Computed example of a mutant assay.
Amino acid sequence: MARTIAKDHDDKRSHILKSAARVFAREGFDRASMSQLARECGISKANIYHYYDSKDAILFDMLETYLHQLRDAICGLDLKGLDAQARLRRVVQEILVAYQGADDEHRVQSAGLSALPDEQQVLLRGYQRELVVFLSDILAENAPALREDKRRLRAATMSVFGMLNWFYMWNTDADEAARKDYAALVSDLTLNGLKGL
């Protein structure tokens, strides 16, 4: 007889992933052990193995969940009726707001993605690429000349992400209002340069 799935299966799985993100961010993926994960989760190792057969499986599910949700949240924004500048402002703001509460996942994404098999990395990097292309297209709407120079367009896109990641990494306790204020600053800099401030 097949084992039934507990009613709280998804909640427990989410708890394991959030706890694992803390451990992987703090200890590093390579140094983290299943015993540490179990302690952080407040459950037994056997219970973790009920959900995941390995530490690698936890890492992949955590990053896949995080990046998939981030991609969907940003690329799925309803931007109809907004002009190019307003689209940029909205997307920049929503990226920074979406980062809130995901400090550990973001750190693990940066440091742990390369620990996964190539086919899993390809999937996860695909989510990242979709976000980059989405923002890149909006930047090009605001500065059409960038479409003719892919290298500069990529540099401009990654510069915006760099500004957002700086704030995110150094202001982890910032509330939504502070994130929105900084997002407006990034948008002003991007659209107008220093003269726009």
Rank of each mutant, 00 (worst) to 15 (best):
W166I: 03
F134I: 00
L77D: 08
S114D: 13
Q69G: 09
H15P: 00
I5H: 04
Y66G: 01
R71I: 00
C41R: 00
S33H: 05
D173C: 03
L139F: 10
A2W: 11
A57V: 03
R71H: 09
Q109P: 00
M34K: 00
Q85S: 09
D11S: 11
K45S: 11
K195W: 01
R87L: 01
Y127M: 10
D8I: 02
D104G: 04
Y49E: 10
W166D: 10
D30R: 14
L96I: 13
K45C: 08
G76W: 03
L164G: 01
D11Y: 09
W170Q: 11
L124H: 09
R39N: 09
L139K: 04
D61A: 15
T172Q: 14
F24S: 11
E94Y: 03
S35E: 13
R87D: 06
Y182G: 02
L153V: 08
R71P: 00
G101A: 06
V92N: 08
R39T: 14
R31G: 10
T190M: 11
A174I: 08
E40L: 04
D10Q: 14
N192H: 15
Y49H: 13
L131M: 15
D181A: 12
A183W: 10
A32N: 05
R107M: 12
F24N: 12
S114E: 13
L146A: 08
Q100Y: 02
F161M: 11
R13D: 03
T4N: 12
R107A: 14
A57N: 05
S187R: 02
D30Y: 04
K12G: 05
Q85E: 15
I58N: 12
Q69P: 01
Q100F: 03
R154L: 14
A177C: 02
E40D: 10
R3T: 13
K80R: 14
Q36F: 00
K55T: 10
H15Q: 14
D137V: 04
